[in-house]
Design a protein around this nucleic acid. Sequence first.
DNA 1: ACCTGACCATGACAGCTGTCACGGGTCGGC
DNA 2: GCCGACCCGTGACAGCTGTCATGGTCAGGT
Lengths: 206, 206
Amino acid sequence: MTDTPVIRLLLADDQALVRGALSALLGLEPDLEVVAEVGSGDAVVPAVLEHRPDVALLDVEMPGIDGIAATAEVRRAAPDTRVLIVTTFGRPGYLRRALQAGAAGFVVKDTPAAQLADAVRRVHRGLRVVDPTLAADSLVAGESPLTARETDVLRAARDGSSVATIAGRLFLSEGTVRNHLSSAIGKTGATNRAEAVLTAEGNGWL
Amino acid sequence: MTDTPVIRLLLADDQALVRGALSALLGLEPDLEVVAEVGSGDAVVPAVLEHRPDVALLDVEMPGIDGIAATAEVRRAAPDTRVLIVTTFGRPGYLRRALQAGAAGFVVKDTPAAQLADAVRRVHRGLRVVDPTLAADSLVAGESPLTARETDVLRAARDGSSVATIAGRLFLSEGTVRNHLSSAIGKTGATNRAEAVLTAEGNGWL
DNA sequence: ACCTGACCATGACAGCTGTCACGGGTCGGC
DNA sequence: GCCGACCCGTGACAGCTGTCATGGTCAGGT
C-alpha cells in the first residue's frame, strides 16, 4: 500500500449517455479517474483484466450477462477489484444476490449525485455501502421462495405466453406447467399468473 | 448571430444520480450552463418560469405529470423555452406524442454522450433533433389504434387484475370490460390480455 | 334524415386457467 | 434405510377469459 492517490474506476452501463455523464461527474473529483467504460456485461471482465481498476461500477440491467453475474466473475478473475452496483431498480432480491455474489456496495440511481463519489471512496477503503432503506426491504422480502423450475416457468410466462406455449418452450407437459404456475402463484400471494410475474419481478426473483 | 453566448438549461429527471451526472457532463461545455434541476414533472413549469432557460431537457418517466404533458405545459407557459426529450425508452408512441406536444427534439439515453451537447445546440438554434431509426419505427408503428375506453381498460389490466376488478374500478359491466379487452387484443395482434398490454406498452400507447 | 363509429350492456359458449388429488421419479440429509 | 424436497406427469373440475351475436344510446359527418 504505497501512496497512490488516484482511485481507478471502470464504468459499466448500457445507456451510453448515462455512462458518459457518470464519467463526467466522477471525473470532476481529483482523486478519481475513469480508466474504462463498457456497455455490456460480457465486456466487463476483459476490461477489468486489461485496465485493472480499483473499483468497478456496474449496472444490473445490461445486455449480455447481467451485473450480478458480472460481479461474481470479476471477483473470481480479479479479486483486488471491488464492485459497486449502481442500478435503477432498488429490488430487494437484487441487493441480496449482489452481496452474495461479492459486491462491496449497492447504490440506487436516485441517490444524490454528491453521494456517489463518497460511496466509491468507502468501497475502495474496504467498507460496505448499502442503501439503508433498501436493506430493510431486503430483510422483510427475504430470499426467493420459488424453486428453480418455478422460476423458469414464471420467467417464460413474462411475455404473456399461454400454458401450451410455455410447455413447448420448456419441453414439459401442460399439466406440469400449470402445477408449477399454481405453486408460484400461491407462494407470491397472487391470484393470477400476471400478478405473480409482477410481484416476482418487483422482488428481483426473476 | 453574436448574441448571448451561453445556453441556459433546465434538467428534469427523477433519478438524482443521472440528473447530477448529466449536469456535470453538460457543465463541461463552455457554452452551456445548467441553471435548474428538478426531479418531478410537477416542478418543471414553476422552475421554467423562475429561471427562464433556453432549453429544457425532460425525461418521459417521472413522478407527477410525465415529460410529454410537461412539454405541452412548458410550450404554453414559456414559448421561448425549447424542449428536448431525453428518455430511456425509445417507444414510437412517445416520439409521436412528444412532437405533437411541441417538443423540438427527442434523444434516447443510449446515444453517445458527446452527441447530447450537440443536440442541445441544434435545438437551441431552432432545429429539430430526432433519432433517425426511431423516427422510422414511429412511422411503421403509427398512432395508437385503441379507442379511449380500450386504453383505459388495458391500462387497468396492467397489474394483472381480473375482469371483475377492472369492472369495479371503472364502474363498468364485466361484459363491457371483456368486450373492450377483446377488441384491444384484436387490434394489437395479440392472443392474450397480457400480450396486448406488453405490445401496447412497447409502442407507447398506454 | 342517414350513416358511421364509439360506447355500454346482456347473454351464451368454447377454451383456457388455476386448483386439487394422486402417482412416480431423483437426490441429499439424518 | 427412511424421509423430505423437488421434479414430472395424469386426470378432473370449477371458474375465469375471450369471442360472438344482438341491441341500445349518442355524437359527428354526409
